[in-house]
C-alpha cells in the first residue's frame, strides 16, 4: 500500500470515529436542552449526564487527530484549506470552545444551570452544520484559484442546494445516531421511561436522515458528475448500508435488541461513509488537489505511521479501561456507583 492510501485510510477512520462519537455527544446535548424546555428533564437528564461526564474531552481529541494528521500526511491541505476556511472554521472553533468550556463549567461548577444546558444544546445543532460545510467545499465548484492563492466564493457556496442538503443531513444524522445510542444506553441503565422517549426520537429522525442522504446523491449528479459516476460504481456498498438501516429501524420499532440496532447503525454509517470516501479518492479538494500532489515525503510518512502505531498501543488499553469503568460497567451506568 502506498503512503497516500495508508494515510487516507487512517484519517478517514478517525473522521468516521469523530462523526459517531461527536454525533452522540451533539445529539445528547440537544435532547437534554429540549427536555428542559418540554419539562421532561426528570426523564432524560440523569441518563444523559451520566454518559456525557467522563467522555467529553475524548470526543474533541478525535477531531484534533484528524486535522493534525491531515496536515502531517498531506501538508498541501494546510495551504489550500487553510487559505479558504478562515471564516467557517473560526466559527466552528468558537462554537466548540463555547460548548466544551461551558459543559465543564456546568459539570464542575454550577450544576443544573439552564443557560449552560441551552448553550450546549444549541451548539450541538449548529456545529454539525458548520463543520459539514467543509465537506461541501471539498466537492469543488466553490473555490477560485487566483495569483494570491485560493479564495472561497461565499455566494456560490450559500446559494447551492447541495450545501443546504448536506447541512440538513448532518443535523438529522446527528439526532438519529444520538437517539439510537441513548435508547440502548438508557435501556441498559434500566431507565425505561427514558428508553421509551428516546426510542420515539430515534424513529422520528430515521426517515429524514435516509431521505436527505438519497437527495444528496441525486444532487451530486449535476454538481459533480465525475464524483457521481464513481459513487454509482460503489452502489453495492450503499445497498448494504440501506439494508443495515432497515434492520436497525426494525429492531427499534419492535423494541428489542437495542444493542444490535446501534451496531447495525454503525455499520450503516460506516458503509456509506467509506463508500463516499472511496468514490472521492484521490481528490482532497476537487479538482485542485489530489492526494498525489499533496502527500508528504517518505521520511515523514514513515515516522507518522510508526508514531501512530505506537500511540495506538498506548491508547487502546487506556480507552478500554475508560470504557470498562464507565460505559460497560452496569453498576456505574445505572447510577449505583
Amino acid at each position: 500500500m502506498s503512503y497516500e492510501l495508508i494515510g487516507m485510510v487512517v484519517l478517514w477512520t478517525f473522521l468516521f470515529g469523530y462523526v459517531i462519537v461527536a454525533s452522540v455527544d451533539f445529539g445528547a446535548g440537544f435532547f437534554n436542552a429540549y427536555s428542559l424546555i418540554t419539562g421532561k428533564q426528570h426523564v432524560l437528564t440523569k441518563v444523559i449526564q451520566r454518559y456525557l461526564s467522563p467522555v467529553w474531552e475524548v470526543t474533541n481529541v478525535f477531531l484534533v487527530f484528524f486535522f493534525v494528521g491531515i496536515i502531517g500526511f498531506f501538508p498541501s491541505t494546510a495551504y489550500y484549506y487553510g487559505s479558504i476556511l478562515l471564516i467557517p472554521v473560526s466559527i466552528s472553533i468558537i462554537l466548540l470552545a463555547i460548548r466544551g468550556s461551558y459543559y465543564a463549567f456546568e459539570t464542575y461548577g454550577n450544576k443544573g444551570h439552564r443557560g449552560y444546558a441551552f448553550m450546549y444544546g444549541a451548539t450541538g445543532l449548529i456545529l454539525p452544520a458548520s463543520l459539514s460545510v467543509v465537506l461541501t467545499i471539498s466537492e469543488g465548484g466553490f473555490v477560485d484559484m487566483t495569483d494570491n492563492g485560493p479564495f472561497l466564493d461565499y455566494w456560490a457556496l450559500f446559494s447551492s442546494p447541495l450545501t443546504w442538503s448536506i447541512v440538513v443531513l448532518s443535523v438529522s444524522a446527528v439526532l438519529y445516531i444520538s437517539a439510537v445510542f441513548l435508547t440502548w444506553y438508557a435501556n441498559r441503565a434500566g431507565d425505561f421511561k427514558a428508553t421509551k422517549l428516546l426510542r420515539r426520537y430515534a424513529l422520528i429522525w430515521a426517515l429524514p436522515t435516509i431521505v436527505t442522504a438519497g437527495g444528496i446523491v441525486y444532487e451530486l449528479r449535476s454538481h459533480n458528475p465525475e464524483h457521481f459516476e464513481s459513487l454509482m460504481n460503489l452502489w453495492w456498498m450503499f445497498a448494504i448500508s440501506l439494508v443495515f438501516f432497515l434492520f436497525s429501524v426494525w429492531f427499534i420499532w419492535k423494541k428489542k435488541n437495542y444493542g444490535m440496532a446501534f451496531l447495525l447503525l454503525i455499520g450503516q454509517f460506516a458503509f456509506a461513509f467509506y463508500a463516499y470516501g472511496i468514490s472521492k479518492y484521490p481528490y482532497l479538494l476537487y479538482p485542485h488537489l489530489t492526494v498525489y500532489d499533496g502527500v508528504t515525503n517518505d521520511a515523514m510518512a514513515i515516522s507518522l505511521i510508526v508514531a501512530f502505531v505506537a500511540g495506538l498501543l498506548l491508547l487502546i488499553p487506556s480507552l478500554y479501561l475508560l470504557m470498562r469503568l464507565f460505559l460497560f460497567d452496569d453498576k456505574y451506568v445505572s447510577g449505583k456507583k
Binding site: 493534525v68 498541501s76 495551504y79 507518522l304 498506548l314 480507552l319
Partner: peptide
Amino acid sequence: FMELAGHVIALPLFMEVFAFFFEAIFLGI
C-alpha cells in the same frame, strides 16, 4: 508556513495529540 512545516515538523504535533489523549483519558478516570 504550515504547508512547509507539515513536511518537516508534523511528527511532534501529531504525537502531542496522543500525549494529550492519554492525559485526558486518565484525568477522566
